[in-house]
Each structure stands twice: as C-alpha cells, then as structure tokens.
C-alpha cells in the first residue's frame, strides 16, 4: 500500500516537473487538492470583498466617464470571483460552502481590502498599486500546475492589467491637475503604499509553505522576490507622477541592481490578517447582509424553477 501511494505521488510530481497541467479529474494528492481549494477560494473571496471598497465610490465619481469605467471594473471583479469559484468547485467544494466560509469569517481574503477608500484618489491608488501588486502574483499563476486555475488566471490577468493602467491614469490626471488634486494623490499613496507591500505576504523566512508551493508550481518566486519586483517596477512610475513614496530608506542599490527599501510593519500586517483592521468587520457585515437579505430571493428563484419544471413535465406526460 505504502509503496503504491508513494509511486502515485512520484508520478504526480513527475507530471508537474514535466510541465503538464493537472486537470480536475486527474488523481492528485489530498494535500494538493486542499491547498488549491484554499488558495483559489481565498483568491475568489478577495475578488468578491474587493468589490466593496471600490463600490464605495461608484455613486461619487467625479465624471460620467469615470463612473462607467469604475462600474465596469467592479463588474469585472465580480466576474473574476465567479471564474475562481468555478475553478474551486472543480476540486469538490460547493458555492454554498464557499459562501459559508467567507461569510462566517473562517476563510481569509486579501487583507488589503480591510483598508478604507476615503478619497477619489484611492480609486487611482488601488488600481495602480493594489492591482499592480496583484498582477505580479497572478502572472506567475498563469503557469501554475492546476489547469482550471491557470486558465482562469490568463483571462483575469488581461483584465487586471487594464485595471492597473486605468488606476495609473487616474493618478496621472490628479498629478497633472491642481495642487489640491496632487495632494489628494500624495495622500492616497501615503496610505496605500505599505499595505500594498504587505500584499506579497510574510518575509520568506516566515513563510513555511513556500517550499511546497514552489514544488507544485503554485509559486515560482518567493514573497520577497515578488515584493522586490513590485518596488523596482513602481518607483519609476511614482517618479513620473511626481509624488513621493513614503519610505525614507528607499534608494537605488547599484550593487544589487535593485531598490533597497525600509522595514514593513509586520505587527500591523498580522493585526489586519487577524481581523483587527479598520474595515474587517464592515466588509464581512456587508457580505453577510447581502447574503442574508438575499435568501428569500434565492428561495423564490428555486421555487419558481421547480414549478416551471413540474409544468413542463405535465405537458410532456
């Protein structure tokens, strides 16, 4: 028995090493399945919760053009949530379970969405920094070993890179505008910079799952490598905008060929992860209210569908 299991595991690992995609019906180690359910559903939950901070500004956009773009963006996020939930479902978890895990607070989602969106410039900063950081993670995931997840990521990445450009373009308009607008942009950067840096997760030495994830190609680079890539990519963009990243230790390191940067406040990171951010309670409350208040609607839809099915059955009988 022991030998057979081992050999299945080895065969499985060989497939991954050869660059094969693992599909829903293929044999997979239980841990692989569980890890993927957790990661894909967390990712899906992040898209769903991510609708709320941006949805917060839909009624207050400064122009009609911005309103249409923001509506479309939040709608894209709902769509991403749907693909990801569908990808998770292929591994044997239901939509009801996914919902329950999110609404009960048992499942995690990206902590970045527990920060508030307090000004219009936040719609720019979220697109530029948060979507920018997300893309760095997601581009890597287009090559991940689990087929349904990798394919969902290809589509999501295309839309996300559009969102990032849209966010950056909002920042550009503000920075090319009046002093008041530029100050609004600087304030948003001040608030979103460090939380965006935290999006890549704990330092490598505090990230025990990284090794297994690399083996399964859920990850191809470590948290710290991805974070460095984000900094290197973002600093020149901030220079073009003419606003200042709030890190006094940020400077180009000729020897490394990378920017050095300051120390992340990990206490804040863990506090928000554990539910003590400014918006954690509100985000979950909003989700739960929408779900609970929607129950009679969902019940009605299934009752109606049953009635229609009965009518059709009678007709054909």
């Amino acid at each position: 028995m022991e030998n057979k299991t081992l050999s299945l595991d080895e065969q499985f690992q060989n497939r991954i090493d050869n660059g094969d995609n693992i599909e829903a019906k293929d044999w997979m180690p239980e841990k692989y399945r569980k890890t993927h359910i957790r990661q894909i559903s967390q990712h899906g939950h992040s898209e769903i919760i991510g609708m709320l901070p941006e949805g917060n500004w839909i009624t207050r956009t400064p122009t009609l053009r911005r309103k249409v773009a923001l509506l479309a963006k939040v709608q894209d996020e709902a769509g991403h949530g749907l693909y990801l939930y569908s990808a998770a479902e292929t591994l044997g978890i239901s939509r009801e379970e996914l919902n329950e895990q999110l609404n009960s607070g048992r499942a995690k989602y990206s902590s970045i969405f527990n920060y508030p969106t307090v000004s219009w410039a936040d719609m720019g900063a979220v697109g530029w920094l948060v979507d920018g950081a997300a893309i760095i993670n997601q581009v890597m995931l287009t090559k991940t070993s689990y087929g349904p997840y990798a394919r969902a990521m290809v589509r999501i990445c295309k839309e996300e890179s559009f969102h990032q450009r849209q966010g950056y373009e909002i920042m550009l308009s503000l920075c090319n505008g009046t002093e008041v607008q530029k100050a609004m942009a600087q304030d948003a950067l001040n608030r979103w910079w460090w939380p965006s840096m935290m999006m890549f997760g704990p330092r490598d030495e505090d990230s025990p799952n990284t090794e297994q994830s690399m083996k399964w190609k859920i990850k191809k680079k470590t948290n710290d490598e991805l974070r460095q890539q984000f900094v290197d990519q973002t600093v020149p963009q901030a220079e073009i905008l003419g606003i200042t990243i709030p890190d006094k230790d940020l400077k180009w390191n000729e020897e490394r060929g990378h920017y050095d940067f300051g120390v992340i406040d990990w206490e804040e990171f863990w506090n928000v992860v554990k539910g003590n951010g400014l918006m954690n309670d509100k985000r979950l409350k909003d989700r739960n209210e929408a779900w609970d208040e929607g129950k009679w609607v969902r019940d009605a839809a299934s009752a109606y569908a049953d009635k229609q099915a009965t009518k059709r059955a009678k007709k054909t009988a």
């Binding site: 769903i48 609708m51 709320l52 949805g55 839909i58 009624t59 309103k67 509506l71 939040v74 709608q75 709902a78 769509g79 949530g81 749907l82 939930y85 909003d286 209210e289 929408a290 779900w291 208040e293 929607g294 129950k295 609607v297 969902r298």
Partner: peptide, 20 residues
C-alpha cells in the same frame, strides 16, 4: 450603482451593475 457588491447573489449583482 448603490447596489454594487450588495446583490442577493453574484450573478444578479453582475446583472444589475451591467444595467447601470
């Protein structure tokens, strides 16, 4: 637009946002 993210289910949320 006020409803975005608060629909009774994801598909309906998307549809209402789309109409907006």
């Amino acid at each position: 637009g006020e409803l975005c993210g608060h629909g009774p289910e994801l598909e309906t949320d998307i549809a209402l946002t789309n109409i907006s």
